Computed example of a mutant assay.
Amino acid sequence: MAQQSATKAPVGQPVGSGSVFLSFAPWIIFGVVASPSTWEYAALAALVAAIVLSSQDLLHGRLRLLDITAIVFFAVLSVLALALPRHELIWLETYAQVLSSGLVAVMAFASLLFDPFTAQYARESTPPALWRTPVFRHINRVLTAVWGAAFTLMTLSTWLAIRFAAEDDWFNWVIPIALLVWAVRFTRSYPDSYKARHPT
């Protein structure tokens, strides 16, 4: 995890209470539950998960980009489901998963312009003196880019599932899950491997 980039925690063990993996849980819940007939329930479940998982951080004034994005997005989906008649939501039923993955990709890449979103988690367990070091910055830029790339490919995959219904299982399940596993493994291993090559 990104936190390991500037600490002495054992390899593979998350540091601190603010885990980036927990922040992805609402998006994963939505991806698993959402379908043309269940996306409203998926959005509500994801909204509840996002609020519960980030409640302690919000109470302490820690606003993390991924959490806020999830709360706003799933709240908007829930409001639309309640406010609009079903025939006006056909496009949303069709593209809900594409939109959710695409939004995470946009959020990740946009954060590279000012502050990689993974750095928000890393700072919770990294001494402030190390926040501006080249190693800390590089690792979090790479991790953020990897998550952006993974969700970009997931966006494409879920879009292809709509176009090629016969391959729905592959595009909606196999490929996205494989991408998530890859991103998680990379996030756990890259900080230590990079530090080993570039000792400070």
Rank of each mutant, 00 (worst) to 15 (best):
Ala46Thr: 03
Leu47Ile: 06
Ala50Val: 06
Ala50Asp: 10
Ile51Leu: 15
Ile51Gln: 04
Leu53Asp: 03
Ser55Thr: 00
Gln56Trp: 05
Gln56Lys: 11
Leu59Glu: 07
Leu59Val: 06
His60Met: 09
Gly61Asn: 02
Arg62His: 08
Arg62Ser: 06
Arg64His: 14
Arg64Ser: 01
Leu65Met: 11
Leu66Pro: 01
Leu66Thr: 06
Asp67Trp: 09
Asp67Val: 02
Asp67Met: 04
Ile68Cys: 04
Thr69Trp: 06
Thr69Val: 15
Thr69Asn: 11
Ala70Glu: 10
Ala70Gly: 11
Ile71Ala: 08
Ile71Glu: 11
Val72Ala: 11
Val72Glu: 08
Phe73Cys: 01
Phe74Cys: 00
Val76Met: 12
Val76His: 07
Val76Phe: 10
Val76Cys: 11
Leu77Val: 03
Ser78Leu: 13
Ser78Pro: 07
Ser78Cys: 13
Val79Leu: 09
Val79Cys: 00
Val79Ile: 10
Leu80Met: 14
Leu80Cys: 10
Leu80Gly: 03
Leu80Arg: 11
Ala83Pro: 12
Leu84Ile: 00
Leu84Arg: 09
Pro85Thr: 05
Arg86Cys: 04
Arg86Glu: 15
Arg86Thr: 14
His87Leu: 09
His87Ser: 14
Glu88Leu: 12
Glu88Pro: 00
Glu88Ala: 07
Glu88Trp: 09
Leu89Thr: 13
Leu89Asn: 08
Ile90Gly: 10
Ile90Asp: 06
Leu92Glu: 01
Glu93Cys: 01
Glu93Lys: 11
Glu93Phe: 03
Tyr95Glu: 04
Tyr95Thr: 06
Gln97Ser: 15
Gln97Glu: 14
Gln97Asn: 15
Gln97Thr: 14
Val98Ile: 13
Val98Pro: 13
Leu99Asp: 02
Ser100Gly: 06
Ser101Pro: 03
Ser101Asn: 15
Gly102Ser: 12
Gly102Arg: 13
Leu103Ile: 14
Val104Met: 09
Val104Trp: 01
Ala105Tyr: 11
Ala105Ile: 03
Val106Ser: 02
Val106Phe: 05
Met107Gln: 13
Met107Val: 15
Met107Asp: 01
Phe109Trp: 03
Phe109Asn: 00
Phe109Arg: 00
Ser111Phe: 08
Ser111Glu: 11
Leu112Gly: 02
Leu112His: 04
Leu113Ala: 14
Leu113Val: 10
Phe114Ile: 15
Phe114Cys: 10
Phe114Gln: 10
Asp115Arg: 11
Asp115Gln: 12
Gln120Phe: 07
Gln120Met: 09
Tyr121Cys: 00
Ala122Pro: 09
Arg123Lys: 15
Arg123Pro: 01
Arg123Gly: 00
Glu124Trp: 04
Glu124Thr: 13
Pro128Thr: 02
Pro128Met: 02
Leu130Trp: 12
Leu130Tyr: 12
Trp131Val: 09
Trp131Lys: 06
Trp131Ile: 11
Arg132Asp: 15
Arg132Thr: 12
Thr133Ala: 09
Pro134Met: 14
Val135Ile: 12
Val135Met: 07
Val135Leu: 08
Phe136Gln: 10
Phe136Ala: 09
Arg137Glu: 12
Ile139Pro: 00
Ile139Phe: 07
Asn140Arg: 00
Asn140Glu: 12
Asn140Leu: 07
Val142Asn: 03
Val142Lys: 06
Val146Glu: 04
Val146Gly: 05
Val146Lys: 08
Trp147Pro: 14
Trp147Met: 14
Trp147Tyr: 15
Gly148Pro: 02
